[in-house]
Computed example of a mutant assay.
Amino acid sequence: MSLFSSRTSKRPRIVPALDDADLARVLKQLNKRGGSVKQAEVTLVATLLEETGGDWDRRGHRVSVLADSTVESGSKLASAWLAKEPENPDALVFHSRVGLVRGLRDRHLEDAGQLVTQCHRAAELNPADPLPWVTLLGMARIERYAQSEVNAIWREATGRDRWHREAYLQMLAHLSPEEGGSSAAVLDFIDVVRARIPANAPCAAIEVTAAVRQYQGLVAQGGVRAMTAGQLWEGGQIAASLEQAASLWAKPGFFQHAAAQADLNVLAYALCAAGRAADAHPVFQALQGTVTPWPWNDDGPAVQRFEQDQAKAERGRQGGVGGA
């Protein structure tokens, strides 16, 4: 992302492609076609991924969004492509990613062995690509691999792209209490990576993301924990990380990675949850109405929650009531 616009905000809406115009164009064409898979659809996706080349960050974003769309629509695109080109590394990694999306939705992998084999074959055919290994990290979450196995996959993924955003998110999810890990494991992971990650790296939002997940977990428990969840943002390392993010992330050109707008959604949510809605105003301005489902959909429709907090940010900027 080269620049965040300062124009008047657009009406909030879910934008899966974020600011990737080429990806948005392909999604639009795929959504128009419907019905049985045609060769033209396979060509659309294959060409887009081929043109992405060795931009591993954008490749990961595009494969992820296309896989989500494929699963949501019930399309057989991934299977049709793999049947046509079984030794194409893009077809292999896309098919395995679609399987992962279904697995995360259903909490169970269909044909886990086959999907793992496809990832390894994709890695053999395109050794520099981190995405087969990142996909395996996701599968490890579902299959609950031993930590030693997960660590080995993690090293393969980050050895190819040190700051791969999704690799960090997959590891964070794997270590979380919701998936059999623990809060202590998450904190240990964040402590280890915090000092190493450049401020504008694709994975720079990992600490704020972890804090939002923790906050939402506390709110979900209800009772006293929910009532005091806001204290999470007060003082300490989390407050310092949020302050740094608020001062840097929305600046034009600071973030360049493909999912930068997704991370700005996380920041806007965190600032509002921390009672700093006024500080979220420039973040909402940078987003121009681009909404990601998470973290907004944790307690209702994402766009509605986004609009509510955006309104709070505007009131806070103007010094009105309800800006906190």
Rank of each mutant, 00 (worst) to 15 (best):
L3R: 00
S5P: 02
R7E: 03
L18H: 11
D20M: 09
A21H: 14
R25P: 02
V26S: 10
K28R: 14
L30H: 01
L30Y: 07
G35P: 10
G35N: 12
K38S: 07
K38G: 09
V45Y: 03
T47Q: 09
L49D: 00
L49W: 08
E50M: 15
E51V: 14
T52W: 02
T52P: 06
G53Y: 02
G54L: 15
R58M: 09
R59V: 11
R59C: 12
G60F: 00
G60V: 04
V63K: 00
S64K: 07
V65F: 00
E72V: 08
S73Q: 03
S75P: 07
K76M: 03
L82V: 11
L82A: 05
K84M: 12
E85W: 14
P86A: 07
E87S: 11
D90E: 08
D90G: 13
A91Q: 13
H95I: 04
S96W: 12
G99Q: 01
G103F: 06
R105L: 12
T117Y: 09
Q118S: 03
R121F: 02
A122F: 06
A123T: 13
N126D: 13
P127N: 12
P127D: 10
P127I: 14
L131G: 08
W133N: 14
T135V: 13
L137C: 14
E143S: 10
S148T: 10
E149T: 10
A152M: 10
E156I: 01
G159P: 09
R160M: 10
W163S: 08
L172Y: 11
G181N: 15
L187H: 04
D188M: 07
R194N: 06
R194A: 08
A195L: 06
I197G: 00
I197D: 06
P202H: 05
E207A: 08
A210K: 02
R213C: 12
R213F: 15
Q214S: 08
Q216L: 12
G222T: 01
G222L: 06
A226L: 05
G230A: 06
G235E: 00
G236F: 05
G236P: 04
A239S: 10
A239T: 04
A240E: 11
A240W: 01
L242Y: 02
E243V: 09
P252T: 02
F255A: 14
Q256C: 05
Q256M: 11
D263M: 12
L264I: 09
N265V: 01
Y269M: 04
R276V: 09
R276S: 08
A277L: 04
A280F: 02
A286V: 06
L287E: 03
G289L: 07
P295L: 03
W296D: 05
N297C: 14
D298W: 07
D299K: 10
D299P: 03
A302R: 04
V303I: 11
Q304D: 15
R305H: 14
R305A: 09
F306C: 13
F306Y: 13
Q310W: 02
K312H: 02
A313I: 15
E314N: 10
Q318H: 13
Q318Y: 12
Q318R: 12
G319H: 15
G320P: 09
V321Q: 02
A324Y: 04
